[in-house]
Design a protein around this nucleic acid. Structure first.
Length: 732
DNA sequence: TAACATTCCGTTTTT
DNA sequence: CGGAATGTTA
C-alpha cells in the first residue's frame, strides 16, 4: 500500500523516505526533490503506522515552506493536517510559549517584536538611560543582543574586560528587563525562552520528548547554534531526527547560520548515515557541470556532485558589457527575444543580482522597453507604517503595558500630546516603576497635555470594553474606526494607498480567523498579532500578470526558472568587496554563485560590465573570478542580437572563451519608443507630459508595473513621483 | 507639526 | 547618485 507513495522516487530518495527509526542526514542537492522527500517521509511514517500525526514535528525556516509542506501532505494523506506541528522555528516556539506562558514567565497575551519594533525598543532604552547613540548605535546594540541570544547567552552569562563591552552587557540586561516589564518578546527571545523552558522544566521536556518521536528539519544548513541546541534538547536520545540540507547552499552565515551544524550532526544525534540526493531534475548538463566545477573550489564540503539524465543542453551565455547600461540593454533584448521568439513566459525568467542597488538600472531599461517586471524585496504588508500603527492600537488593547505600542500611537493621529507631555509621562512612569499606560491613567501628568492623555487612555479603554468578545474582523474594524487612522490618511494627499492597506487589514483579520486560526490553535487577537509579527506577508501584492522576476540571489534560493540572468559578475560586486577579508567570506560568495547557477532549468546568462555607476561614482570592475572558475567548454561568449558586434574590434570571434569585445551598445540610443516598442502605462522616459497642477514636465524615472506604476516627473516646480493610478497625466 | 534642508551612508534577510 | 534619517525653520 505504500507503493503508490513511493512510486517515481529514485533509489536514494526511496532510501531516505523509508529509513528506519533513526537519525539521518539527507544531503539534498539543488533540484533533487528535497521537499518531495521530506513530505513523502512524513506521509510514509503515518501510512505505515510508525507514527501518528501527533508524533511528528517538522521545522522549516519560512512560513512559505511550512505551508507548502502542509499543502502537499494534505494531498497525500486522507487526514486533517491542520493540527500538525509543522511550522517555522519561531512559529513553533510561539505555540509552545503560548501554551505554557506561566511556566515561561510571560503574560498570556505577550506580544512579539519584529526587528523594527526591537530597534525602536532599543532606541527608547538608550534614551531613557541617557546613553549616547553615537557611541552605541541602536543597530549594533541590537546585533550584540541578538547574536548573543542566538548563541544561547544571557547578559548574566557574559563578562567583559573593556568598559565598552561591559556597557553593552549592561544594556543587554536592561533591554531584557524592559521587555519583561512590557510583556514583549523579540524573535531571538522566542527561541531562547523556549529553549530555557524546556531545559529547566523536566516534566515538560519529557512530555514533548515522548510525543515527538520524529523530528524533521528543512534547510538544516541554515540553522544557528541556538536552533541546533533546541533541536537537540527536544529530540532527546530516542527521537529520530531527519535533517535535510545542503551545505553548498549555505548563504546565511552572515545572520548566524552555522554550516558546522551539519558536520556535527552525525556525532551529536548519533546519525547512522548520510544519504545523498544527487540526481537533479531541474537543469540541463552544462548548467550542472558549471555548478559542480565552481563549488568544487570550496573546502570543507561534505561533498556532492549533481547529475542529470537529461542532455547537456545549451551552453551558458556570457556577455561582457562596456557599462551597466549596456548590460541592461542586452538583458532587455534577450528577454524580449525569449518571450517573442521562443514563447517563454516572462514569469519563467529571472533576473538576479547580488545587491538590491543593482535593480535600478535594470528597472529603468525594462520600464522603457515596456517589459512587465516584478521586483521582490522591500516592504511587506505588516511592515508598512500605517499597518504598524493599526497593530499598535490592537496591541495596546491586548496588553496595556506595551510601552512601544503606546508611544507609537499616543499622538498618532495627532491629538495634542506633544514631546513635552510624553517626556513628563516617561519621567513619571520611570519614577513610579509602572508602565506608561498606568502612569497616564493614574493622572501622572497635569495640564493641557495631561487632559489629552486622559482622553487617549479613555479611548483605548473604551475600545477595549466595546470589543470584548467581538469576532476578530469586527474588532479590527472597530479599532480602526475609533483610532481615526483612516480619516487621518484620507485627509492627507497622496496617502490613499495607506487607506487601502488599512481596509485590507480587516480582510486579513477575517482571513486569519477562517484559515490560520485552526492551524495555529492560538486564538483571537493574540493569534492575529503573532501572525502579523511572524509572517510579515507578501512583499508585494501580486498583480497576477505575467512579469519578469527581479530579485537578489538570496531571494532566489529554492526557486527555479526556465531562463536565468545573473548580472553584475564583477570583482567587488559578486563576490562582494566585504567578503574579501576572510576565506569564509569568499566561500560563501561562491555558494551564492552556486545557488544562482542552479536556479536555471534550460538557459543561463552570466553578464558583467566594465564600468558601473555605484554610489555616484563610476567604478571599473574586472570580471568576477567565478567566471574564470567555470569550465570554459560550457561557456559561450555572446554579443547582442539586434546590433551586431563592431567587427573591427572583434578580432577573436565569438567563441574564444568567454571574453568578448562587444561595443554594440555604447552609442547613445536615447529613447526608442517608435515602431513596435510598447510603453508602460502609455508613457516612456523622456516624454513630455502635462499635469493639471504642476504643468508641463518630463518623465525621468519609473517604478512598478501594471496598476502600480509610478512615474518620476521633472516639473518646473520640482521633481515629483506620481502614481499613474491617481494622477491625471496627459502627453504634452 | 509639517514642509524643507542637510547629512550620512551604501551586501545579502527571515523570523 | 538616491534614500533614509535627522535637523531646521515658518
Amino acid at each position: 500500500m505504500t507503493e503508490s507513495l513511493l512510486a517515481g522516487l529514485n533509489p536514494e530518495q526511496r532510501a531516505a523516505v523509508t529509513l528506519p527509526h533513526e537519525s539521518a542526514l539527507i544531503l539534498a542537492g539543488a533540484g533533487s526533490g528535497k521537499t518531495r522527500v521530506l513530505t513523502t517521509r512524513i506521509a510514509y511514517l503515518i501510512q505505515t503506522h510508525q507514527a501518528s500525526p501527533h508524533n511528528i514535528l517538522a521545522v522549516t525556516f519560512t512560513n512559505k515552506a511550512a505551508k507548502e509542506m502542509l499543502t502537499r501532505l494534505a494531498a497525500m494523506l486522507p487526514i486533517n493536517v491542520s493540527g500538525m506541528w509543522i511550522g517555522t522555528f519561531h512559529g513553533l516556539c510561539n505555540r509552545l510559549l503560548r501554551t505554557h506562558y506561566r511556566d515561561a514567565n510571560l503574560p498570556q497575551l505577550f506580544q512579539i517584536l519584529d526587528s523594527q519594533d526591537q530597534q525602536a525598543a532599543i532606541k527608547r532604552l538608550l534614551k531613557s538611560l541617557n546613553i549616547d547613540d553615537e557611541k552605541y548605535p541602536p543597530k549594533s546594540v541590537q546585533n550584540f543582543i541578538n547574536s548573543n541570544k542566538e548563541a544561547g547567552h544571557r547578559a548574566g552569562d557574559l563578562s567583559a574586560h573593556d568598559p565598552f563591552t561591559r556597557r553593552l552587557i549592561e544594556l543587554f540586561a536592561a533591554y531584557d528587563e524592559q521587555c519583561q516589564r512590557e510583556g514583549v518578546v523579540d524573535f531571538a527571545e522566542l527561541l531562547l525562552r523556549c529553549y530555557e523552558l524546556l531545559s529547566r522544566n523536566e516534566a515538560l521536556r519529557e512530555h514533548y520528548r515522548n510525543r515527538f518521536t520524529h523530528i524533521l528539519v528543512d534547510e538544516f544548513q541554515d540553522t544557528n547554534r541556538l536552533q541546533y541546541r533546541w533541536l537537540h534538547l527536544l529530540a532527546g536520545p530516542q527521537a529520530a531526527v531527519f535533517a535535510v540540507g545542503d551545505d553548498d547552499q549555505s548563504i546565511y552565515a552572515f545572520r548566524g547560520a552555522n554550516v558546522g551544524n551539519m558536520r556535527e550532526f552525525e556525532r551529536d544525534f548519533n546519525a547512522r548515515q548520510i544519504i545523498r540526493l544527487e540526481q537533479n531534475y531541474r537543469s540541463h548538463g552544462h548548467i550542472l557541470n558549471a555548478a559542480n566545477a565552481l563549488i568544487k573550489q570550496n573546502s570543507e564540503r561534505l561533498g556532492k556532485n549533481l547529475w542529470t539524465s537529461e542532455g547537456e543542453g545549451e551552453p551558458i551565455r556570457v556577455f561582457e558589457a562596456a557599462s551597466d547600461n549596456e548590460e541592461a540593454d542586452f538583458i532587455v533584448d534577450e528577454v524580449k527575444n525569449l518571450q517573442r521568439e521562443e514563447g517563454v513566459n516572462l514569469s519563467d525568467i529571472a533576473l538576479l543580482y547580488r545587491s538590491n542597488a543593482q535593480s535600478r538600472v535594470l528597472e529603468h531599461k525594462l520600464f522603457n522597453a515596456g517589459v512587465p517586471y516584478r521586483v521582490y524585496g522591500g516592504l511587506r504588508f505588516f511592515e508598512r507604517q500605517e499597518i504598524k500603527h493599526a497593530l499598535a492600537y490592537l496591541r495596546l488593547i491586548a496588553n496595556q503595558n506595551d510601552d512601544g505600542a503606546f508611544l507609537r500611537v499616543v499622538n498618532f493621529p495627532p491629538r495634542g500630546i506633544g514631546a513635552r507631555t510624553i517626556e513628563n509621562l516617561q519621567d513619571a512612569s520611570q519614577a513610579a516603576g509602572v508602565s506608561l499606560w498606568q502612569a497616564a491613567s493614574g493622572g501622572a501628568v497635569s495640564g493641557r497635555g495631561g487632559a489629552s492623555l486622559q482622553a487617549f487612555v479613555h479611548l483605548i479603554a473604551q475600545a477595549r470594553e466595546a470589543t470584548q468578545g467581538l469576532p476578530l474582523a469586527e474588532l479590527v474594524e472597530h479599532v480602526l474606526a475609533v483610532s481615526t487612522l483612516i480619516e487621518h490618511y484620507e485627509a492627507s494627499k497622496g496617502e490613499s494607498e495607506r487607506v487601502e492597506n488599512l481596509n485590507e487589514l480587516v480582510n486579513a483579520a477575517a482571513a486569519f480567523e477562517q484559515e490560520v486560526r485552526q492551524e495555529e490553535e492560538i486564538e483571537g487577537l493574540a493569534g492575529f498579532l503573532s501572525h502579523a509579527s511572524l509572517e510579515a506577508g507578501e512583499h508585494q501584492a501580486g498583480s497576477g500578470q505575467d512579469a519578469l522576476q527581479l530579485m537578489t540571489v538570496h531571494a532566489a534560493k529554492g526557486l527555479e526558472f526556465y531562463a536565468v540572468f545573473v548580472s553584475g559578475l564583477e570583482e567587488g560586486l559578486f563576490p562582494h568587496d566585504q567578503s574579501f577579508n576572510d576565506a569564509d567570506g569568499i566561500q560563501e560568495e561562491r555558494r551564492l554563485m552556486y545557488v544562482a547557477i542552479t536556479r536555471a532549468r534550460r538557459r543561463l546568462y552570466l553578464t558583467h560590465a566594465q564600468s558601473r555607476m555605484l554610489h555616484g561614482q563610476v567604478r571599473y570592475g574586472l570580471a568576477s573570478r567565478f567566471l574564470e572558475e567555470l569550465p570554459q567548454n560550457v561557456l559561450k561568449a555572446v554579443g547582442s542580437r539586434s546590433r551586431p558586434m563592431a567587427s573591427s574590434w572583434n578580432t577573436g570571434g565569438w567563441n574564444d572563451g568567454w571574453r568578448s569585445n562587444s561595443r554594440s551598445y555604447d552609442e547613445p540610443a536615447p529613447f526608442r519608443p517608435k515602431d513596435d516598442t510598447p510603453v508602460s502605462g502609455g508613457f516612456h522616459i523622456g516624454q513630455n507630459v502635462s499635469h493639471a497642477k504642476f504643468g508641463i514636465g518630463v518623465v525621468i524615472g519609473s517604478e512598478g508595473y501594471g496598476d502600480d506604476v509610478r512615474l518620476q516627473i521633472k516639473f518646473a516646480v520640482g521633481t515629483k513621483w506620481l502614481s499613474l493610478k491617481y494622477a491625471k497625466l496627459d502627453p504634452a
